[in-house]
């Protein structure tokens, strides 16, 4: 189940994300060492692993956000430069400027910039997509609120609305559920699941193994290298977790 080759032969649409022998280092320290994954399209995929396993680095490497990356990366079957508009990124909350003067609707409007360019005005069509996206995640009434006065959950809803407004085929989220209340987490997972049912692909770095087992279609277990990839039930086995975490997290002892 740790192999990626057998899933590739069956897949008709290109994979959501394909990494082959990807390595990355930060300040001389190797964080990713020969990572190969093949995440199928139209699935809700979780990237899990202990702290320092390189989960964030893996998704950032896939998005060209890590300076020194070796290996081969394809998103939606293409190199990144050809699918920029079709890929949405929801970063970790602490890599977004805190105390920045911007309103919720202005954040969601960013989702239209890849389509409209940095100079042209947004069209009425863009405005409608922005409004619909905010409605879908339940933040329509917060449109004019400054982002730094929103709760963690509200803020994460706004960032997901940005990805929805972009109409992306692949949404990559880095720890989207940190500092988020349980109700929001459940609501956001609902939205993400619907996206996947409509043929879009979602990859999320996540900590909550219980939620991954219950709600995700696909999982990648990372610890510098890929320890396992496949259906969550096959990936999050006691043996694999023992190797990744050095112990079996209690939550999985059923």
């Amino acid at each position: 189940m740790t192999t990626s080759t057998d899933s590739r032969t069956a897949a008709q649409p290109p994979s959501a994300l394909s990494l082959r022998e990807v390595s990355a280092s930060y300040g001389g320290r190797t964080v990713l060492d020969g990572v190969s994954v093949e995440i199928p399209a139209a699935t809700l995929c979780a990237v899990v692993g202990p702290n320092g396993a390189g989960k964030s680095t893996m998704v950032k490497a896939a998005l060209g956000l890590v300076p020194s990356v070796r290996g081969h990366v394809e998103l939606l079957g293409e190199p990144l430069r050809r699918v920029r508009r079709r890929v949405a990124y929801v970063p970790q909350q602490d890599s977004v400027a805190q105390d920045f003067p911007i309103t919720a609707i202005q954040v969601v409007e960013m989702g239209r910039y890849p389509h409209r360019g940095w100079l042209r005005r947004l069209t009425r069509h863009d405005d409608e997509l922005v409004a619909a996206a905010m409605d879908q995640v339940g933040v329509a009434d917060l449109a004019e609120h400054p982002i730094d006065e929103l709760s963690g959950g509200q803020r994460q809803r706004v960032f997901l609305a940005r990805a929805l407004a972009q109409g992306a085929d692949l949404v990559i989220l880095d720890e989207p559920f940190t500092a988020v209340d349980a109700r929001t987490e459940s609501a956001l997972l609902e939205v993400l699941t619907t996206l996947c049912q409509n043929g879009r692909s979602v990859i999320a770095v996540h900590h909550d193994l219980r939620a991954v087992l219950d709600r995700f279609d696909h999982a990648v277990l990372l610890a510098g290298t890929v320890l396992a990839e496949g259906a969550p039930g096959d990936v999050l086995t006691p043996e694999h977790l023992e190797r990744a975490y050095g112990m079996t997290p209690l939550v999985l002892n059923r």
Partner: peptide, 22 residues
């Protein structure tokens, strides 16, 4: 003025503008 949208986006969320191609 001309680069306002880009400067605002890049300052607020540099990862977003980078993925968008800048």
């Amino acid at each position: 003025l001309v680069g306002f949208r880009l400067l605002r986006s890049a300052t607020f969320d540099p990862g977003f503008t980078s993925v968008a191609g800048v």
